[in-house]
Design a protein around this nucleic acid. Structure first.
Lengths: 236, 236
DNA sequence: CAGTGGTCTAGACCACGAA
DNA sequence: TCGTGGTCTAGACCACTGC
């Protein structure tokens, strides 16, 4: 593990364990250098990482402060790969509706950058939170990358299998959101009435080398869907 | 302007002007160092910035590549402060419904970290895109920070006024999303039927020193609302 | 194993905020 | 004006990719 990752974890744990609130001041860079016995650049790298993750913010000429969003039960739209971390206190389960090897549709082939005659794994499942329907999920995986899937894997965390089991590294993802009304089939699966609101989230996941391997369409039950995002200044 | 910002802008313009596609390889770091006459660290800083903005991705041992999402007409949920950049080809207008100084409600006081007897500017407006209703927006500004607003300012870009006119610096924001049904009043303002889907986006904007100055609740017309987000690997 | 990106160091100097 | 974070440099060494 890299030094700056190590230090970032320790600092994150420190903030968590001491229950520091938004605005709490952390030690100055000089002190952190001494405390961890590393150079200034390494501390800065650490702080950049913590800032990206939304855990601190830095004010030039003033100091380093804790950043905390205070609402509970929201799903982060950025730390994708399942909701494990956001919804730790909730019970998440899945029901598999379909799992098979297919040829991609035109839409899928475009999003996964594949030929129409290559193979994809198609997975359709319902996810439940505390026994209530959370979402209806359809995913397509490029079979030349995700070479094998079975019911057991799919009923657990697919991302865990991809990173640990297959040893692949996830690089980045594009996420698209739309609001619309449920059609009859979706309503039936989610246990809602037709034309009720839905949030449709389409995601394309890429490996670190830029290759797309997973295209997903997730339809959320509007009653269970609260999301949040932390944005940083580099966008302004 | 800092060197690494300058170089980032030049590289971004180069990618744009040459219409480089996702996966196009850019020059190696060594070459960029020579080309711009700076040290390796500065180039790395440049590339980190471009990566955060979703313009490139880097693959260790391989190279630097262009990242591009291909869908048009989506609003970025991260580069907030109005949609100017995302919807360049569209005509955006506003109608002001209310503009006045008020005392905050409890909800507003919590989100802006204010006392109940301090003053806030309250702004309510409808925004249109190509003549269609895009959203209904309610905003509360801490009056001790945003000291003055009038109809003219509010009918244009409020963020432009805050950064240029008042010389304030926006640091970061927390964004919360929920899907629900329109109530009667919202439906009337947006020209939709009651109980139609809506996306409610609540945002809290902070200055670089961490002080919240703007709490906004924006209700989107579901027919006009397409959003996107680019996520990076540090979340995985 | 050559090429390429990533980490880490030590230190000079700059820019901003608060007193 | 001083304390603090930010930029930039030159260079050593590490780690991953792909031929």
């Amino acid at each position: 593990m890299l030094k700056y990752q190590q230090i970032a974890e320790e600092m994150e744990r420190y903030i968590e364990d001491h229950g520091l609130k938004q605005g709490s001041k952390l030690p100055v860079i000089e002190a952190l250098m001494k405390q961890y016995g590393v150079s200034k650049s390494t501390i800065i790298k650490t702080l950049e990482l913590l800032e990206k993750k939304g855990i601190i913010f830095q004010v030039r000429g003033s100091g380093i402060f804790v950043r905390r969003q205070n609402r509970k039960g929201y799903i982060s739209l950025l730390s994708n790969q399942g909701f494990k971390k956001d919804l730790e206190d909730y019970v998440l389960t899945s029901k598999i509706i379909e799992l098979e090897v297919r040829k991609p549709t035109e839409e899928v082939s475009i999003n996964l950058n594949m030929d129409l005659n290559e193979d994809v794994y198609y997975v359709k499942r319902i996810r439940y939170i505390n026994g209530q329907t959370l979402c209806l999920e359809e995913s397509w995986y490029n079979k030349s990358i995700i070479t094998y899937l079975n019911k057991e894997i799919v009923s657990e965390s697919i991302f865990h299998y991809i990173t640990e089991g297959l040893g692949l590294k996830v690089g980045f993802s594009d996420v698209y959101l739309q609001v619309d009304k449920l059609n009859e089939e979706e309503a039936a699966f989610l246990g809602l009435e037709k034309d009720a609101p839905k949030l449709l989230v389409e995601s394309i996941f890429h490996l670190t080398n830029g290759q797309p391997f997973d295209f997903s369409k997730v339809t959320y039950n509007y009653q269970q869907s609260q999301f949040f995002i932390q944005a940083n200044s580099h966008f302004f």
